[in-house]
Design a protein around this nucleic acid. Structure first.
Lengths: 146, 146
DNA sequence: AGTGTTAGTATCAAATCAGTACTAACAATA
DNA sequence: TATTGTTAGTACTGATTTGATACTAACACT
């Protein structure tokens, strides 16, 4: 695709996809949220080729979702940490997961629990203003310049 | 990537990404939610090559997010409609859009309003059980077979 | 000196993508 | 009847990306 210069793209979805619109990037973000930080952890977790991993990590770093930090001087070694922008991706990952759970839910699935209440987390998207579930009420779209 | 046989993959995110883990598929779903149904509408809206569009539409149809319907016998013409599974993708799209709005928000952006209240929709992900925003509370992960 | 660990790079074949031209099956117009 | 237009694609081809494997750098450890 054409992933550059989305400054004039009015669709916020398209802008996000230009940043992390491929499966590997999303899986890296998933693993980063799970606490992984190092090259080999990501590689083993996902079974990704090292060339691919290098490129995806560099892209996510350049886009500001990860940051590279030196965790050892001798030998020189780097790790990748989520930035605030990267952490803000968690809701996206949860909603993607919620769809998979609903529609591709056979067999064993990873589960997430609220540590406080012990209940299983059921992620849903709502409009913060009205509290209504996304997709349950009619909406109007305003496209700039139309 | 390796997009087949995710029946034994415990991660619901990975399962979803095997279905629609590329940018074109997500943009097609976006446009389908916006009411587009026809080949040429998608093509013109996204500027996608017809070969790509054919393949993505076929894949989304095969995965059950779209269904093909004949809307004219003479000449024979088909259109693509969202299925229930496809409609359930809307929350994912909204959260992707929310991230883009937050972190790639310069210039003009498309806006969505609640038709009833007239307020702009601010999509957030919450745990339906506790009502807490996703990512604001500690959680526990249960990976099957660990 | 030899082995192990971590974070990559080099290389190359295979797959995918992207762009353009073209086709099928008609309808509408001149 | 011939020409033009519309819609939904397919054929073809070159460019790009991906994926797999092997290899390297910079050390620590034994």
């Amino acid at each position: 695709m054409d992933n550059n210069d989305n400054h004039h793209e009015p669709c916020p979805i398209a802008r996000s996809l230009a940043v992390a619109g491929d499966a590997w990037s999303l899986l890296i973000l998933r693993d980063a949220h799970a606490g992984l930080t190092r090259f080999d952890q990501f590689r083993k977790s996902m079974g990704i080729a090292p060339t691919m991993l290098t490129r995806r990590l560099a892209a996510l770093t350049e886009e500001g979702l990860l940051e590279k930090r030196r965790y050892s001087e001798h030998p020189p070694r780097e790790e990748y940490l989520l930035t605030a922008a990267g952490r803000d991706f968690l809701p996206v990952l949860f909603m993607i997961g919620a769809w998979g759970r609903q529609h591709r839910g056979g067999g064993k699935l990873t589960q997430f629990f609220d540590a406080e209440t012990g209940t299983e987390i059921k992620a849903i998207a709502v409009d913060e203003v009205t509290g209504a579930k996304i997709g349950t009420r009619p909406m109007r779209v305003l496209v700039p310049g139309e």
